[in-house]
Nucleic acid binder design. Structure first.
Lengths: 259, 259
DNA sequence: ATTGGAAAAAATATCGATATTTTGGATCAT
DNA sequence: ATGATCCAAAATATCGATATTTTTTCCAAT
């Protein structure tokens, strides 16, 4: 979405480039925004705050988003809020009902199933295309992002789970790097969107006690398969990577059917 | 997107149902909107007008969309216009640049290639899933929409091409009906979006002298394959249907490389 | 008790005016 | 000439006040 114009072909992996990449990979954001908190328009700030409050669950799924209330909560004018909500609508984080305002997108096991399913479809395609079209530079980016991801712990604490923002960022970066050579920016945009949706579910399911499986190993296996250009294997690994996480989340999501 | 809640299982194809379907299938709209012109909020009206002006090419690709100018052009206040533009952004019809306003989404052969490619990927998947999951009611809807499409001419005049709005509507309805049983509303939403993007390209390429091939026959062949649940064949037919149209459009789109 | 519906309350949508930011030029030093 | 800098004009973004629409409440009629 925001990739550096990157038309410098071939090999370049110098220090400067690395630092830039690191500096650039923050501020996830599904696409529309592009600006960071701090600077820029009030609308963008509102967008960021609302977005993260929805993703974190601070704003409950299905909750009515009353302008007046938000105006108080964040101390922005109503125009920026309205505009931000509009933007969040395209990210599937907010639903708008004509003449009846906005509400936080609802979640359900059914929706989650659909999300996961769709993600599989799109990412399989995107990964195959990416493997088929990727050049050297792409390979390097995969290696690099895999390495960077591995350098940072999933949880900030050892005994219990404490979300590590930096891990989140690098994790997304890694998964997007896998797909990056897919020759369709639209496709990448969709995958980006769905990825973020998934993160939301992960947060909402409050997966504090995260699974003990060796996620790093899984990532490495995928990386290897990708570098060998073994599309079938890479896809298989990626898909089961998602299935595992998915089932785990689903289980946490609906602790009802127990008896 | 707006399908009647349709939980009446099995066979029903009575008169009333038909009329309703016909009445319902108008007002395409990629999803967000849902309301028709005439009634409802000013924002929705602005959305519709802008949308069709962009699709028709009345608003040139890449053109800066100055609020003040639009305010004059359509005689809406700036808030509804702004909001409508925001909505159009998620449909990929408009690009927003933070702090720098909006512009009509640009078009190019490259973008068109990507669009077509992505559409193929998604629709192939969606069609296979739809065929795999479709029930009786779905089959009936396919037959029905195919029939309705066939009852209406592609062009209003016989000697030259004059766009027929009714055909447009039914054509979209048919293609969406094919996919409708795909168990992912997100996927269907994406396909819907891309379909509309494609229509825009068709309009922009000013395909007045439309190809003489028998489009109806193609549609029927697809319908047959689908009803036989022959996924491979159906996909092949659908894909080549798109390729043919796609190449034709691309040719019209870039009349430069001639020598 | 329950339904229908009018009136009040609440919330959204819209407007018109201002504050900010960006853009385009003209000016001045190199 | 070339480019950096500052100013004016243009355009966007934002605010606060109304107009509309939806929701809720309350009361009467069956």
């Amino acid at each position: 979405m925001r990739r550096s114009t990157a038309r410098n072909s071939g090999t370049d992996l110098d220090e400067a480039s690395q630092k830039n990449d690191i500096a650039t990979q923050d501020e996830a954001g599904s696409g529309q925004n592009g600006e960071s908190l701090g600077s820029s328009s009030i609308t963008s700030q509102a967008y960021s705050r609302l977005r993260s409050d929805i993703m974190s669950g601070a704003l409950t799924p299905g909750k009515k988003l009353k302008i007046e209330e938000l105006r108080g909560r964040y101390d922005f004018g109503s125009s920026p809020i309205r505009e931000a909500l509009s933007m969040l609508t395209s990210d599937l984080f907010v639903e708008r009902i004509d003449q009846r305002g906005f509400r936080v997108a609802d979640v359900s096991e059914k929706e989650f199933d659909e999300l996961l399913r769709t993600r599989r479809w799109l990412e399989e395609r995107a990964l195959r295309e990416s493997i088929a079209h990727g050049d050297n530079r792409w390979e390097e980016q995969v290696v690099l992002s895999a390495y960077r991801l591995s350098r940072v712990p999933r949880s900030q604490a050892d005994d219990q789970f404490v979300a590590n923002q930096e891990w989140e960022i690098r994790h997304k970066h890694f998964h997007m790097a896998l797909l990056a050579a897919c020759p369709s920016s639209i496709m990448l945009k969709f995958c980006d969107q769905l990825y973020d949706q998934n993160v939301r579910y992960r947060h909402l399911s409050g997966s504090k006690a995260y699974p003990s499986r060796d996620i790093n190993a899984e990532h490495n296996a995928i990386t290897d398969a990708v570098l060998e250009r073994n599309a079938d294997l890479a896809v298989e690994l990626l898909m089961s990577h998602y299935s595992t996480t998915g089932n785990f989340l689903k289980q946490k999501l609906s602790p009802k059917k127990k008896a």
